[in-house]
Design a binder for these strands. Structure first.
Lengths: 336, 336
DNA sequence: ATACTCCGCTTAATCGTTTCACTGCTTAAT
DNA sequence: ATTAAGCAGTGAAACGATTAAGCGGAGTAT
């Protein structure tokens, strides 16, 4: 690998301990020796071994517990959150380990394993499911972790975007435009994000005195393909919706595709709102009205919260809920 | 953290060496002792410390050297490649470390550092630049690595999609449709992918005896915004192109947006081809004709190639070039 | 009978750090 | 004058694994 502390010590004519003290700023060392040691260090290009270092104490590595599904990393929402998580972690001198669940182990086993082997000091749980085993397992084992989304049955710390209020915002916007038959294309119900969005949807309808038609609420998958199909179903209803709220931009894109195929003009004949505001949303034709998720801030919060917990700093709060913003573009219009 | 090998040894009434032999399948142990040890292991939930293990030998971790730019992880092309890279690595019992370059260190320093501290056994270099310092630095230091794309001045092993042939495919397709004024929206020239695509473009034109108009070749950024602007520029030319090849789907999406704004009908008035075939491409309106990159296969190849190198297995080839496929959809049509 | 090998296991060295306990030595306080 | 405290630095014990070497005893070939 590279030079060891022993070689540095020898060449600088001091003991190993002294080198360590110089490098860590602990202990008391004369300026002269300090300089001599530092010179040798940069001369040899010495870097302390990560393994030896983490053998005593922490590994300064955070685990990213990815969902079992193989392609999930490709989710643009997730990716941007990761990017800022990574930046924040790096700024605090932590590395990030991608923890993909293997077929032969359950997701929670893999999390436990990572922590027990000391490969990571704590974990970020991404893509929370409603009955997520991971959070509970980590809670019981007393392993530091943060959930990206509301956790299931335990009070794990978490960071989440306020999907409930966001859905209310969206539906109110549609109501103001005169819509009464408002459809909802939901994400798979096993996703923890799904429930609050539905709740917001029905709350907003109820407060406006509009009766909710269960036919207008459909659960879909996660891809454009699913949005495409689901929108087709909604259109084939005897009394189709005049506006639709899709629970992700991907679903909304699929829905737009279906609407074009059906000869409908989005933002005229029918209104559509997405969820997330992925970069592409503003560049669709027409640009998609959607709810912006503060992805970068979520990543930051996840990282700092987890690091606080690992380093035993008592964080102010155990759970952060960030507001979403309605980005009004061209896919919503007054009902005809 | 968790139980240590010492505790297991004690409770099983054997020496720590025996426990180690049982766990690694090395050495000779009676079936009886074996069972006794294994029982205690599962009883205590023992897992060997990663740090101690990597102190002698490898860390079984691959580094992902991300580009310095903060948001790059969000690139859908990159993300899907990562997903399969991660799967493959996991199948070989390797973990993945995300290496984000910090502001205060150069990208190559960070790669060297990761390897010298023994945090990773090797690195995957993503998002290659034309004058990439990373590959050279790692070559000189003799550190195992693989480039995702053609490396600059050294003969590092690499895996790449054949952008040269792909561009030829695309331009030939347009030529067959009768187009003669074919525009090219290029990626930033600092990306290593950029050059071969341009070469393919001009080769295809030359072999058809079409004179290339330098005005039709424009270098853009990476986002939809850049595609949008660049297309506007092309349209404002005295003699605008009848077909355009964009060097990424993102650029193509932006271009589509600009075309709509200009009142042009894509796939009728003007033809457009993208690069990559991100999932969304098939769901645009109209669906985008594009060149499919074998992202999953690239991820697999990167992982296996790097692991082969790390484990000193002589791989068959040092460089893999995978073919791209032209996906003909609805944005290309006979010239009017 | 001698020498050799194989079995099942233990002892101890090793990997590269951090850190506690200690040693001379000088300076300050009682 | 004696004790206490501080400084600059050393030695060695951890940390938790892997692995080479060794050690009786049994089996086998010469």
């Amino acid at each position: 690998m590279s030079a060891t502390i022993k070689q540095v010590a020898k060449q600088a004519g001091v003991s190993i301990a002294t080198v360590s003290y110089v490098l860590n700023g602990t202990g008391t060392v004369t300026e002269a020796t300090r300089q001599r040691v530092l010179a040798v260090v940069s001369d040899l290009g010495y870097q302390p071994s990560h393994a030896a270092r983490s053998l005593r104490g922490r590994s300064y590595t955070l685990g990213l517990a990815l969902p079992a599904q193989p392609g999930r990393l490709a989710d643009p929402t997730l990716a941007e959150m990761l990017a800022s998580l990574s930046d924040t972690a790096a700024a605090c001198d932590y590395s990030l380990l991608l923890a993909t669940a293997r077929a032969d182990k359950s997701a929670s086993e893999m999390c436990l394993s990572l922590a027990r082997t000391g490969q990571v000091d704590g974990l970020v749980l991404l893509d929370m499911q409603t009955d997520d085993e991971r959070a509970q397992a980590l809670c019981e084992a007393g392993i530091p972790h943060v959930c990206a989304g509301p956790p299931a049955r335990c009070n794990s710390p978490f960071v989440t975007a306020d999907g409930y209020s966001a859905a209310i915002l969206a539906v109110r916007h549609l109501l103001q435009l005169g819509h009464r038959r408002i459809g909802l294309i939901q994400l798979p119900s096993e996703l923890a994000e799904s429930e609050p969005r539905y709740l917001g949807y029905s709350t907003a309808l109820a407060e406006a005195g509009v009766e909710a038609d269960p036919q207008l609420v459909v659960e879909a998958g996660r891809g454009e393909q699913d949005g495409f199909q689901t929108m087709q179903e909604l259109l084939s209803l005897p009394e189709p919706p005049t506006a639709v709220l899709a629970c992700s931009d991907e679903l909304a894109f699929g829905a737009m595709h279906a609407l074009y195929d059906a000869g409908r003009t989005v933002g005229q004949d029918i209104s559509l709102i997405g969820f997330d505001d992925v970069p592409l949303a503003a560049h669709m034709h027409p640009p998609l009205t959607t709810l912006r998720q503060p992805r970068r801030r979520m990543g930051e919060q996840l990282a700092t919260l987890l690091i606080d917990i690992i380093e035993k700093r008592q964080p102010k709060t155990n759970h952060v809920t960030l507001p979403m913003r309605l980005m009004v573009r061209k896919t919503t219009a007054r009902v005809q």
